[in-house]
Design a protein around this nucleic acid. Structure first.
Length: 469
DNA sequence: GTTCTAGAAC
DNA sequence: GTTCTAGAAC
């Protein structure tokens, strides 16, 4: 690929700066946006407005800018009530792809659908990721930061084995690591939920004591319940309704309908707008609507939940979808012994505790386990008669045609069939947009248009059909 | 950066 | 037969 073509993609962060709807926080020198393909449950970028490509272009003079970006990072972390600040990592990628200085603010679970390649993992868990404090110190001491040589960069990207960031677990297979990370995440979610319950109990104990002080003599006709606090402590899930204030009762109802039901399933995912813990809830949906026009609610339509494509719109035909959020045959996520192709259920972390991933993982309504979901590629021109439907939607089979999938299909009693399932593979192949014969190059047309005009106006009036939304 | 495919590797 | 990976396109 020619350099100019790649530059278009590298400039994506610059383009994002021209649309305030992307901003979660904005200041005069930087903005906070969500990461388009989050590699953890919580993943943000603090993007500098000044034109610095990356940290290797910084000098000691930019230390105030770094401090400011750190302030914004802390601000966005403070907004995340579900996690504590110690659960976040803040730093830069040394050899970043993007053409604009951006600081990663990422939770340390690394539990995400978008974590698909070993290089994704290594980009955050090797020296390719430089913690903010180190960048700050190096600029303070030596005044600059050297880029990592290309050869070393590639070596680190492909580095194996992959080491868990939370324990000593080591594996060569990313899918094993993902399953392992899922267990960590679930365990921590359980701990967080327990802590919430205990905090609530302590709060109620305190309130009860205050009530006793305020009412030293109980009414004789309505004796006080014997040892209510002890009962609560024994069974925190069954707090007598009579002991709750109206506000607490309302809160309990909300909790039962909101957070609590997510306890034993992936509770937070920026793909799931319905989740009350979603940090991106009620945030702008970027240009997704304009890039993915409403589709008829039939099986030709590929639900956006099947791909890492940002928050789901709540209105329109999509809202009526009640099917699986993930493709039914995500067997790629099954546990496997290394160097064996046979899928197998048990895993090295199998033990009593939360549900085991992925057999019993939820498949409807909620965010699901990380996997190899294929997202809808948003770049296509609906004005073309032949493109009334996204080329990927009409051409890509939902599942690769093989006996294993067929067995899974029948076992799950899935009635949903992809329109291409019964087609001649050659037919499907001929429709495939990635077939060099069929591929279009909209960005090439765009480049020609852009060369005649300026980028900002083009972006504002005719939002770029970005790959990164 | 991402998706997708073909072919290699297992 | 299935998974992994490199390369092309975006």
């Amino acid at each position: 690929m020619e350099v100019d073509e790649l530059k278009y993609f590298r400039d994506e962060l610059k383009r994002k700066l021209s649309d305030k709807r992307n901003f979660l926080i904005e200041s005069d020198r930087a903005v906070v946006i969500k990461a388009d393909f989050p590699k953890s449950q919580y993943h943000f970028r603090v993007v500098a407005k000044d034109e610095f490509r990356d940290i290797t272009k910084l000098t000691e003079e930019q230390l105030p800018l770094l401090d400011h970006m750190m302030d914004l990072a802390n601000q966005i972390i403070e907004k995340q009530e579900h996690l504590e600040s110690r659960n976040f990592r803040i730093g830069f990628k040394v050899n970043t792809f993007w053409n604009r200085l951006n600081l990663h603010v990422i939770s340390d679970d690394f539990y995400s659908m978008a974590m698909k390649r070993p290089k994704h993992w290594n980009s955050f868990n090797t020296e390719l990721f430089m913690p903010f404090q180190m960048v700050h110190m190096m600029l303070s001491v030596q005044g600059s930061i050297e880029p990592i040589p290309e050869e070393r960069h590639k070596e680190l990207q492909d580095q194996k084995p992959l080491r868990c960031n939370q324990c000593d677990f080591v594996t060569d297979l990313l899918l094993d690591l993902k399953a392992h990370l899922y267990q960590h995440w679930m365990r921590k979610e359980g701990e967080r939920e327990q802590k919430k319950k205990m905090d609530k109990i302590m709060e109620m104990i305190n309130e009860t004591k205050l009530d006793e002080v305020a009412k030293p003599e109980p009414l004789p006709e309505k004796p006080v319940q014997a040892q209510p606090v002890a009962d609560i402590a024994r069974n925190p899930n069954k707090i007598p309704r009579s002991l709750l204030t109206p506000q607490q009762q309302q809160g309990k109802q909300q909790a039962q309908g909101g957070y609590v039901k997510y306890v034993y399933r992936p509770p937070v995912n920026m793909m799931n707008q319905n989740n009350p813990n979603n940090p991106f809830r009620n945030t702008p949906s970027l240009n997704i609507q304009s890039l993915n026009p409403r589709q008829p609610n039939n099986f030709n339509y590929r639900h956006p939940g099947f791909g890492p494509r940002g928050p789901m719109p709540l209105q329109g035909p999509r809202a009526s979808w009640s099917g699986p959020r993930f493709q039914p045959n995500q067997h790629q996520n099954r546990f496997r012994f290394p160097r064996s192709n046979a899928p197998c259920q048990p895993n090295r972390m199998a033990q009593p505790g939360p549900q085991q991933f992925p057999k019993n993982a939820p498949t409807s309504g909620q965010a699901g386990p990380p996997g190899q979901q294929q997202g809808v590629r948003p770049k296509w021109n609906p004005t073309h008669a032949s493109d009334s439907q996204h080329p990927n939607q009409k051409s890509k089979p939902q599942n690769r045609p093989n006996a294993f999938h067929a067995k899974q299909q029948s076992e799950n009693q899935q009635t949903i069939q992809h329109p291409n399932q019964n087609k001649n593979p050659n037919q499907v192949k001929s429709q495939t947009p990635n077939n060099p014969q069929n591929r279009k190059k909209p960005y090439q047309q765009k480049n020609r248009q852009q060369s005649a005009g300026n980028h900002q106006n083009q972006g504002a009036n005719n939002p770029a059909p970005s790959t990164f939304n």
